[in-house]
Each structure stands twice: as structure tokens, then as C-alpha cells.
Simulated scan of single mutants.
Amino acid sequence: MNLPISPQVKITFSKRKTIGLYVNGKGVEVRAPHGTSKSYIQGFINSKQDWIVKKLNEAQAKQSEKYQLRDGSVIPIIGENKTLEITMGSRNQVIETNNTLFLHVSRLDQARINKVFSDFLIAKAKQLIPSIANEVAEAAGLKQRLKDIKFRRTKTKWGHCTHDGRLQFNWLIMMAPYKIIRSLVIHEVCHLAHLNHSQAFWDLVKKHDPDYLLSKHWLNVHGHKLALFE
């Protein structure tokens, strides 16, 4: 059965010269040049039917693997699994033990649970990541170039380095193992010296993180599980 153009198929027109097809957990998007006819787009979708079905199945499988903020769920914090216990209390707070993460929330709704957990992860990130970044920057002789560290949840990047020495990290990385977090920080700190992915950049990364390829592979395989709020 052909996939018809429908509300589930998003069509975006722009000044681009070619037509493109993108599939994620939310559905199918066709990006086409201005003036592309509906019949041409439908034919393009039909020609890619098998590929679309395959990618939709893959996206749905990844969606089902994402960690869920539910009472009794198991959530990794810096790679250590914690059982989530959610209760209503007079104020919002998180209490972390060796095996359990107690979320006390003033309202038992998902938006409040998400906010309390997000604040907890951001606080963890602010506590851990700057210490790693400063340590690596010192070892690499880049301390003077490191100007600031910010945290932001982004959809496509785990980290970012600006030309003026400001690093940005996605705080959801705090659910990854420590080795992966450290590898990400090393990657971004090394961009303070080389704002590119040249051989010199990778040589510097390898000097401070000999197993960086293993960490990169881990994120490629498991990173989607950390995207809680998409």
C-alpha cells in the first residue's frame, strides 16, 4: 500500500534545488523546491515506500527504547541504574540513594515530573562537567581559551564549542556512563584549539581520550534512549 500525502506527511517548501525525504519518530517529512507539484511529491513518496516503512519501524523501535519517567522505571544517572519512586510532597525535590531516585513533586502530573527531573539533571551537569572541562583544558594548555560553560537541551547535538571559547552541553548526557560524559567534554574542550574536525583535532582528542571511538560508538547506539522529552 502506498503512503498517501496526509497530515502525517509534512511537506516543507524552500529554495532548495532537489527533493529530500526525512523520517523520524514523529513521521515523514518531504522537503521540496518551491513549485513542486503534489503529484510529483506523491510519486516520489511512492518510489521510496519500502525505505520509508523500514525507517518508520526503526524510529518506532528507538522511541520504545527511550527511558520513561514513570514510577518504578529504571533510570541511569551517570551510568548507574536507579529505580524511580515518584510521590507527591509539599515541595519539589529529588533525593538520590545508591539504588533509588526519589522524586517528590507538588503535583502528580507529567509536566511537573519532567521539570523536577530536568532540574535535577541540570544540577548534576553543573556539578560534574565544569570540573572535567577545567581539568582537561589545564592538561591541554587551553585554560585561557575556556571562557564559559552553558547547558541546554538540544535535539541534534550533545555538545558545542563557539569561536570565542564558550562550551555548551546537553544536560541529558548525565544519564550516560561517566566515561561517555568525559569523552564528550574532552571532544568539546579540544575544539578550543581546533574549531574543526581536522587531523590535528582528532590527534589532540586521542591524546586525552585514547578510547574516543568507543565512546562515539556508544552514543551512536544508545544516545537515542536519553532523549526523554521529545
Rank of each mutant, 00 (worst) to 15 (best):
I78M: 13
Y67R: 00
I86S: 06
E85D: 05
G165T: 04
E96K: 15
E85C: 08
Y178Q: 07
T162H: 03
I180L: 07
Q144N: 13
I113V: 15
L142N: 02
C161D: 14
D71E: 09
C190G: 05
N170S: 11
N81I: 00
H197C: 11
I95K: 15
A176K: 02
Q110I: 09
Q127N: 15
K207C: 09
V116P: 10
I75H: 03
K143M: 07
G79M: 11
D209R: 07
F102N: 12
H191M: 02
D203I: 03
R70M: 06
A137R: 06
L84Y: 03
M175L: 11
Q93H: 15
R91F: 10
T87D: 12
T154Q: 15
D164T: 15
P177M: 04
R152V: 00
M175S: 05
A193T: 06
A123D: 09
M175Q: 12
Q168F: 07
K207N: 07
S118P: 01
H194Q: 08
K179Q: 06
L84I: 14
H191L: 02
C161V: 13
K126G: 06
S73N: 08
D164K: 13
A193K: 12
G72H: 09
T97W: 05
T83Q: 13
L69P: 10
G79F: 05
G165H: 05
A193I: 09
I95H: 12
N98P: 04
E96F: 01
